[in-house]
Structure formats: structure tokens, C-alpha cells
Write a protein that binds this DNA or RNA. Structure first.
Length: 216
DNA sequence: GTCAAGATTAGT
DNA sequence: CTAATCTTGACG
């Protein structure tokens, strides 16, 4: 079993970490079972300048884990219905995070299906709310340290063969900056990318990302 | 205390 | 297009 991605991986700008997360594996340990999926879609959220970020107006009880050390989870409830999973990045205190928007299911698919009691026959992890339901992620995991290799963590995955697309983020409000920057990243043509209208817009290709925590 | 709005989803 | 469902954060 590979080691979890180390703290140093997360100690960078959300704009660097977000595309590098694509292709890596999100692992959830649940009642002795291993649930895992390959990350295929993410969005970067910054602090300060980013009007769409929960960190925009500073720390509050709800978002305080965003301002904690990198490599921890920030989990929140949206619309009173669904949970969303973020990975805290950057220097402590900045409030940067990356929203995990979609996975390709790899392990524990039957348990994921059972967790999605509302729609077990539909796609399991092609949206931020759906993947949290499939992996049984809720606010109890808010602030969880992803570098421990317990309960919830990330493992290095093979370099994606697919090109990386970048485009505007989904469902956000805010000013021109928040609406128009290409801070959403996904694997081109992957069937488990969330059903967002932007999927058909022109695709800005990003560099081939060195996924591995390579040191020179 | 009151209240509008929300980084979504499934169903009409 | 809209309901579901509830916590947060702003205001007083």
C-alpha cells in the first residue's frame, strides 16, 4: 500500500495543487472496507481575493479548517442536503482549498452503491455531493488530517493519460474574477466528470503535470 | 431572534 | 424549472 501524499504536496498554492490532484486516489476506510476513487475533476478556491470562496470573509466557525494547516479536509453541508469535500492547501492561515468534484470509482463500488440509497443505479461519484454520499463523508470528517493514512487520505496514482482541461468554476457567484478565471480542472472526455454545461466549451490544455512527489 | 441564500441533486 | 432541507452569517 503506497504512503499517503505527504504534507509537502499540499503546501503549495491551490492553483498548483488542483491540477496535480487529478489522477491521484482518494481513499476512504469505512468499517474495515476500503473505498477508493481516482480524482477526475477539481476546483481551486483561494482566500482573500476570491469572492466565490468560503474564506472570502475570513475565518468563521464553519470554515475554520480552511485556515488551518494544509493537508486537512474541509467538509461543509450545502443546501441543507449534500456535503462537499475540500482539501486545504497553501500556507496555514491563507484559507486556500481545492474542492473535489468527481471521482472514477475504483474500489468498494458495491458499498458506494449501498451508501447512495437514493439513486444506487445512477453514477456514483460524478459530482461533489454524490461522491461524499458514496464515500460516507460528512461534517464529522471536517478538519481530518489527510496525511495520517487513517479513515480518509490520498494516495499517489498513475499519471493521467488524458489531457487536462481548465475552465470556469461551476455554480459559483461573485465578481468578474470569481466567475471567469479558469480554476476548474478535469480530465478531458472522462465519463465520470460531473454533468456541467462547461464541459463542451473550448478546453484549455494545461501542462503535463508531474503527479509524483518528485524531488530532484 | 429573524431571515435570505447557498461551491447540489433528482424529479417534473 | 423547481423542491428538498438546514446551517451559516448578517443584521439588529
Amino acid at each position: 500500500m503506497p504512503d499517503p501524499l505527504p504534507r509537502a504536496f499540499y503546501t503549495r498554492s491551490a492553483l498548483e495543487v488542483a491540477p496535480d490532484l487529478l489522477g491521484n486516489i482518494l481513499v476512504r476506510e469505512l468499517d474495515g472496507h476500503r473505498l477508493a476513487g481516482r480524482i477526475v475533476e477539481v476546483e481551486a478556491y483561494l482566500g482573500g481575493e476570491d469572492a466565490a470562496s468560503h474564506a472570502f470573509r475570513g475565518p468563521t466557525p464553519r470554515n475554520r479548517s480552511m485556515f488551518g494547516p494544509p493537508g486537512h479536509a474541509y467538509v461543509y453541508l450545502i443546501y441543507g442536503v449534500h456535503h462537499c469535500l475540500n482539501i486545504v492547501t497553501g500556507p496555514e492561515g491563507d484559507g486556500q482549498a481545492v474542492l473535489i468534484r468527481a471521482l472514477e470509482p475504483l474500489e468498494g463500488v458495491e458499498l458506494m452503491r449501498a451508501n447512495r440509497r437514493e439513486a444506487p443505479d445512477r453514477q456514483l461519484t460524478n459530482g461533489p455531493g454524490k461522491l461524499c454520499q458514496a464515500l460516507a463523508i460528512d461534517r464529522r470528517l471536517d478538519g481530518h488530517d489527510l496525511c495520517l493514512g487513517e479513515t480518509l487520505w490520498l494516495e499517489p496514482g498513475p499519471q493521467p493519460g488524458e489531457p487536462i482541461c481548465a475552465g470556469p468554476r461551476v455554480g459559483v457567484r461573485g465578481d468578474d474574477l470569481a466567475l471567469n478565471r479558469a480554476w476548474r480542472f478535469y480530465l478531458k472526455g472522462h465519463p465520470d466528470v460531473s454533468p456541467a454545461p462547461q464541459n463542451r466549451l473550448p478546453c484549455t490544455l494545461t501542462r503535463p503535470t508531474p503527479n509524483e512527489t518528485s524531488h530532484d
